[in-house]
Structures are given as C-alpha cells and as structure tokens.
C-alpha cells in the first residue's frame, strides 16, 4: 500500500488505462485534498466545491478513456487546470444570473446569498482556520488565485503563468503582495504568526 505513494502519477495513469482500477483510486487519494482545497478557496462554497471536485475527476476519467490525455507525467497541473476552468465557469454563471427584484425593488438573489451564508454557517470549521479562510477570501482575486495555485495546489509559478495567461514575473509579484496582505490582515486580526 505504502509503495503506491511513490509510484509517479504518469505510471498510475498508464496502469489505470491498462485496466488497473485501483490506480485511479490512488491518484484520487493522493491529490484529493490539494485539488479540493484549491477549488474551495476559489469558489468559497462547500457544496459547489463538491460538485466541481466530482466533475473535475469525471472529466479527467472521460478524457483518459477517450485517449485525449496528452500531459504525460503532469497529472496534477492538468487536473487543476480542469478544476480551475470549472470554478471560473461557475463563478461566471453566478455573475450572469439576472437581477430579479421583488415588489420593493430589492434584488431577490440577495436573499439567496443570505441563504448560502447560513448554509455555510452550518459547516463546522475550527475558528482559527475559519479566520484564515476569511482572510484568503478577502484578497484581491488575482492575488488569491496565485496564492491558491502556488501554495495549496503546489503548481510552479511557471505553470501558473501558463494556466492564467500571464507571465512569471506577474505571478511572483501577485504572490508577493498576497503574502504582504495576508500578513497585514493577520496582524489586524491578532492572529499569532508561528
């Protein structure tokens, strides 16, 4: 069992395609936290993140089955690219929702937002990690994306630049300011730095 952890992703993909079903389970187990955390920090909704997580792996599996996979040996960046695109699509979809007002002119979707917040409040999160999540959430979108993809998804700055269509120096700059802003927020919120 332990030996599976050191088998490279590319080899696991190959043996999965040869019919070894447990190889995909190993890949899922190996990368699920990294991929799910990244999705969650991009969409900030546990339920939506679950959907995107499932859809990501279903696309991965379908793509493998159809023989379209060409990123040999680079499974994680490929899977994360799919996850990120799905996350962006879902955020855009939310943004395209028409504004429907009630009889007093209030946006009725604002009620839905309240509902989402209350759904989220049901989640049991430790206080400290909840505060950390909130600080990440407050970062400007471009900084948050680089921080999530570099720190939580463990992509290189080069891979992030390719994924986001920017250059590597822009990514490093965004990460620099993300860390500065996180530190400021931690100091403001009296979060003790290790």
């Amino acid at each position: 069992m332990h030996n599976k952890e050191i088998i490279p992703d590319g080899v696991l993909l190959k043996v999965y395609l040869e019919g070894n079903e447990s190889a995909m389970e190993t890949l899922v187990r190996r990368h699920k936290t990294r991929i799910y955390t990244s999705i969650y920090l991009l969409v900030h909704d546990r339920y939506l993140a679950e959907d995107i997580f499932q859809e990501t792996f279903i696309k991965v599996i379908n793509c493998l089955r159809s023989g379209k996979y060409t990123h040999e040996g680079k499974f994680l960046p490929w899977a994360l690219r799919i996850a990120r695109n799905l996350a962006i699509d879902s955020i855009r979809h939310k943004g395209r929702l028409p504004v429907v007002t009630d009889s007093e002119g209030n946006d009725i979707f604002s009620y839905l937002n309240v509902h989402e917040d209350s759904r989220e409040s049901i989640m049991v999160e430790k206080e400290e990690t909840g505060a950390l999540h909130e600080m990440i959430r407050q970062l400007p979108e471009e900084q948050r994306e680089v921080l999530v993809l570099r720190h939580y998804a463990d992509l290189s700055f080069k891979e992030i630049a390719e994924m986001t269509g920017t250059n590597i120096n822009t990514c490093i700059g965004r990460m620099h300011y993300a860390l500065i802003n996180m530190r400021k927020m931690m100091q403001k919120n009296f979060v003790r730095l290790k």
Partner: peptide, 14 residues
Amino acid sequence: RMKAELDRFSVDPH
C-alpha cells in the same frame, strides 16, 4: 512564517 500559517488550512472533499 506565512507558509507555515497557510499550511494550517486544508479541507477534504466529502
């Protein structure tokens, strides 16, 4: 220090 702090956050799928 910031990296260590960020490491405290991770979530697993259901």
